[in-house]
Each structure stands twice: as C-alpha cells, then as structure tokens.
C-alpha cells in the first residue's frame, strides 16, 4: 500500500494568488484575565499545503496562537477564520466540528496509558465518528504511515519517546484533518528522533495537509528552510517564505 492511497491528493506548495487562506488572523489580540498580553494585533494568512514553523522564545505567545486556532482560548479582539468560517464568534455547540478539521500533537504526547497503540489511535475515531465502518483498517493504515504497523498491541510505556510521539501523530491524523498543529512536538526528544518526527510531518504536508509547527528547535528550522513566522512578546516580528530560526545576519550567544 502506498502513502498516496491513504492520504488526501497532493496540493502544490505555493499558494495560488487568488486562493482563500485556510487560516487567517485579522488584528487578533489576546489578553488573559491577569492582564498578560499574550498576542498583540496579529495578522496572518496560511494557505492549504503550507508548512509553517512558528518560532520564538518561551512565553513569546506560540502556544496561545495554537490555542486560539482551536478555540481553546477566545480572542480578546480581532477575527480568526478557519476554512472560511469565522471562529471568534462561533458558538460552543459548533466547536467540535471546528476541531475535527485539526489534528493536534503536543510535547507531552497525551497518550492514554491503559490503552494499546491501536486503541489510542482508534479512540479519536470512537469519540468523533462512533460506529464508523472499517475503523480497524483506518487505524492500521495510519499506524503504517507513521511506521508503527508492528506496534499495534504495545502499550505507551513499552515505547520510546519518539515512538510515543508517532502514536500521537497517528491519532491526530486518523480522521484525515485539513490542518495539522504540532506544539513543540520534538521538545522531549533527542536530535535524531526529532528529525525523524519532522520528516514525518514534512511527508504529511507533502500530501497536501497544512502543517503548523510551534518550536524552538533551531537546527530543525534551519535545515528545513520552510516558512517561518517569528513571534516576540506576542507580535509577529518576521514572516519569511523560506527562513531560518533567526533573521539573516542575526546572532545569539
């Protein structure tokens, strides 16, 4: 079975100028109840098939950006559109449908320790599409994509960190989302394993899924030369089509 058989059709990496962005932010700000301004006046447009790194120091606002996307947090001002639908004014009742457009992975995997690898992946389908036919086949296909087809019956604590993150990716991928969000997915992994995870995300993106990865892994960002959105104190300070972790000529100690 080839990857092309189970993934959505390929979409060109470069957006058509007339294409509607799959994610857009218009003057979005987020101030928490304690007065912290996490995001300030952000404008963004991300197109279908983009692969974006969101970079910045800890506390710069990367995670808030991810939380705003899935409406885990509500914007204090501005408008956010996902797939043409404004999410800032969306009712709670419609949030599940919005969230099904996303596949999300975190630094800490968030796997259920009492479920096997296959059960962890199937869990996402059970709760969003209960009673779906061919669930077992879909789970196996997805685990094959992430290279864990031989670990179906293992439990999370029997796997390495990299393998656990692959299970989390499979769980995020099993319902074929349009947008893949990864919040520091390599934060707990060694460089080699991290690179393996990023290659997997690139492979997913190559088949047309929009990928947004928040990271402060400089090496990976520099190696990939993809779109980089840099955030500092809640503001987008750089948005480069093929950028590195730092601005050209910028240096750190």
């Amino acid at each position: 079975m080839s990857l092309a058989a189970v993934m959505p059709p390929e979409v060109g990496q470069r957006p058509d100028p007339g294409q509607r962005p799959v994610i857009s932010f218009h003057g979005v700000s987020k101030t928490y109840a304690n007065g912290t301004e996490a995001i300030r006046d952000v404008d963004l447009a991300i197109y279908q098939g983009d692969f974006c790194f969101v970079v910045g120091a800890s506390g710069s606002g990367k995670t808030t950006l991810v939380r705003l996307l899935i409406r885990e947090e509500a914007a204090s001002s501005g408008r956010i559109f996902i797939d043409g639908h404004e999410t800032t004014r969306m009712s709670r009742r419609r949030l599940p449908k919005l969230r099904r457009k996303f596949g999300i992975v975190f630094q800490d995997y968030k796997l259920l320790p009492k479920l096997t690898v296959a059960q962890n992946v199937a869990f996402a389908l059970q709760v969003t599409r209960p009673g779906q036919r061919h669930m077992k086949e879909k789970v196996e296909e997805t685990l094959w994509i992430v290279g864990l087809e031989d670990k179906l019956t293992k439990f999370p604590d029997e796997l390495s960190g990299g393998e656990q993150q692959r299970v989390a990716i499979a769980r995020a991928l099993v319902h074929r989302p349009r947008i893949f969000l990864a919040d520091e997915p390599t934060g707990n992994l060694d460089p080699d394993t991290s690179w393996g995870i990023v290659q997997l995300l690139l492979q997913i993106n190559h088949r047309g899924t929009t990928v947004l990865m928040a990271t402060h892994n400089r090496e990976i960002v520099d190696l990939c030369r993809r779109r980089v959105i840099a955030i500092d104190s809640g503001r987008v300070v750089r948005d480069e089509a093929e950028g590195g972790y730092l601005r050209e000529g910028e240096a750190t100690i």
């Binding site: 599940p96 099904r100 968030k110 709760v127 969003t128 769980r171």
Partner: peptide, 16 residues
C-alpha cells in the same frame, strides 16, 4: 482528565 482533554481536542461534543 487526559482522556477528556483528548476527547475535546479531537472534536467530541459536550454531551458525548
């Protein structure tokens, strides 16, 4: 709590 968090994140409805 982790299970509920995952359920909500993958798009399970409130009543589910």
């Amino acid at each position: 709590r982790t299970e509920i968090e995952i359920m909500k994140l993958v798009g399970a409805g409130d009543w589910f």
